[in-house]
Nucleic acid binder design. Structure first.
Lengths: 344, 344
DNA sequence: CTTGACATCCAAAACGTTTTGGGCTAGAAT
DNA sequence: ATTCTAGCCCAAAACGTTTTGGATGTCAAG
């Protein structure tokens, strides 16, 4: 049984009130008394009961994070990095993080509702925003504090941090063009994810700006997983006329695509140039290392967490919406386009 | 403001007690009243205040999980899979998961102490156990419920689930031997991690059983990361007399080692056979796919969580210590040993 | 008519903390 | 001698729920 306030009070023949106020450092406790309280509290290993304190303060000092797990087994380095950022920043500011995992859908909204209405958490962090995002709708309508990693199509007035996919994709396309590529394919992520559609739109625009046509045969869809990337790349490689470069919606799929290429004894960066998006940890350790559009996941995670805590502590955000410019990281998975047979 | 019990009571002109008992399904409230209560509770979107309930019940329905993050940025698929398992199983049994991230060390023990003494969680899940594990010592001495993924050298009487590293390593060595390898190196993980020393001991024994000598030049150390694996493999490749096969303490390092081999234009599975340990998601997507010793991380995570919840609900564990036999998954990173120059 | 038995409801206590609104004493000022 | 002020302390209320231990009313059995 951990020691409680009343145990300390009994030990020192003081009231619970005085012990509480001594520990909180109020000035209406004599220095001697305070010293005695501090000493025995330490000796008894006293740690306040978090639940009781929460009930009284009407504040949990906990932020919620619901991981949208796609499928039961999922291992996405994106999320470990995210979690490390959220966890470290929260710990630094003495907040705890309450987690649940649930697949997108109605059950997900229920979990959000439960977190909010049961007052288990003071605020939420949202990731992988959707174009029409029920989670954001729910929280806006309940005026519940949250910050998201990513924007949404249907709502605009809420705090978020995001990467400028447009700029990133444009840099990638420009880079491919400068390498001589004109036949560029694109591997899209799920349509309902906001970042997926933004990146796709960026691709369409960047191609147009370079006066390149988009060949519908070279557009593929994947589920953001390595397996999905591999499947899509195999479809591409089965084509009789292939593109010379493939832009991929995220790194994990790009890595899967690389595997598919190599399994046919083709060379990534030569027979097919591949560019990913994210720069997750493993990206620099593939062979060849993956050229990718880097978004600072860990930094964004700390940033989002920090913003949420600021909101909770009634500070106003000087910049509630932050659009970060990503950086194209040139590595080995891209190379010059193969010479085109001269048709003249 | 979410609706509270007293709001429902006021609405229906009932006492808070009756409303509470109606919702809890006690038989001393009339069916009509109960129906009315249920209806308005639903209409008002009532969700019980978790904090108040916890205080009264002296039970949080929360399990704690402290992620031992090594370094600020870390992305280990091992942990995402672990988290998915813990999260999904906890959600299934209506428990929440409270998370913190902290690097191993004294601050880590403080975090455990805080979780325990503040009664924020009912029990803890421990992973990456150490030979002499301060976390386990702390919880045993406070009789705090926990279940761990992994054993410990200094304590034996606590509930855990673990993979039989011994059996796994032996299978791997036997497999290499059957392929003709006699010169086998080993890349160890950190010495303080229990699974690391168990696997190393297993290697020593398995080599002896096959009458093979261990060449100290072929023993390396790494930090379980891809970068660590790459560095170690580079040391190996710099050697004038190299082993023909390398057994690696975990998949992430094995993947790093593969990259190092490929960067020298050598072929994994031919010039150097590599075997990992874990079978994390990406392992089957490398090129060549990684031969590895599979431990079912997701399953173990659900199992550990389930056991903890059983403990918390006063059920006795029929099998408090589970040693799972891993499976050697043969893929492309291993191949026959190169022919040895005949010295006779 | 009384007594039980049953059905239905509720006031009050409890969980452990913080906050509110004083109370008491000693010494200084009037 | 009285009032005021500081300094120190504490009882009680409050947070929202569940549990405890009745209270009240009705109806059937005696």
């Amino acid at each position: 049984m951990p020691a409680r306030l009343k145990d300390i009070a009994a030990e020192l023949d003081l009231s619970v009130t005085t012990v509480s106020r001594a520990l909180a450092g109020y000035s209406d406790v004599s220095p001697q008394t305070r010293a005695r309280v501090l000493a025995t509290a330490k000796a008894m290993g006293y740690v306040p009961d978090a639940t009781a304190r929460r009930l009284q303060k009407q504040r949990a000092n906990v932020i919620g994070f619901i991981v949208p797990t796609f499928g039961p087994r999922f291992s996405d380095p994106f999320f470990s990095e995210l979690l490390a950022g959220i966890g470290n920043e929260a710990a630094r500011r003495s907040y705890d993080v309450l987690i649940s995992t649930v697949a997108p859908g109605p059950a997900e909204t229920d979990t959000y509702r439960r977190f909010i209405m049961s007052r288990s958490v003071d605020g939420m962090i949202v990731v992988r925003t959707r174009s029409d995002d029920a989670r954001i709708a729910l929280m806006l309508e309940n005026e519940f504090p949250f910050v998201s990693f990513g924007r949404s199509a249907n709502y605009s007035d809420f705090p978020w941090v995001d990467t400028d996919g447009m700029a990133g994709i444009r840099a990638a396309v420009d880079h491919l063009v400068s390498l001589g590529h004109r036949n560029i394919g694109y591997l899209r992520g799920p349509q309902e994810l906001m970042f997926s559609v933004l990146r796709w739109q960026a691709f369409v625009r960047a191609m147009a700006e370079n006066n390149l046509e988009i060949n519908p045969e070279w557009i593929f869809h994947g589920d953001l997983s390595q397996g999905g990337g591999r499947t899509a790349a195999n479809q591409l490689l089965d084509l009789s006329n292939r593109p010379s470069a493939l832009l991929v919606g995220n790194d994990l799929m790009a890595m899967g695509a690389m595997t598919a290429v190599q399994q046919r004894n083709l060379v990534v960066g030569q027979d097919l140039s591949i560019i990913g998006f994210d720069d997750i940890g493993p990206a620099e350790h593939t062979h060849p290392p993956l050229t990718t559009i880097r978004q600072p996941i860990y930094y964004i995670a700390t940033q989002v967490t920090s913003m949420l805590i600021q909101l909770l502590e009634d500070e106003t955000l000087q910049q509630p919406q932050q659009l970060l410019t990503p950086e194209l990281v040139l590595r080995g998975s891209t190379g010059p386009a193969p010479a085109i047979p001269d048709l003249t």
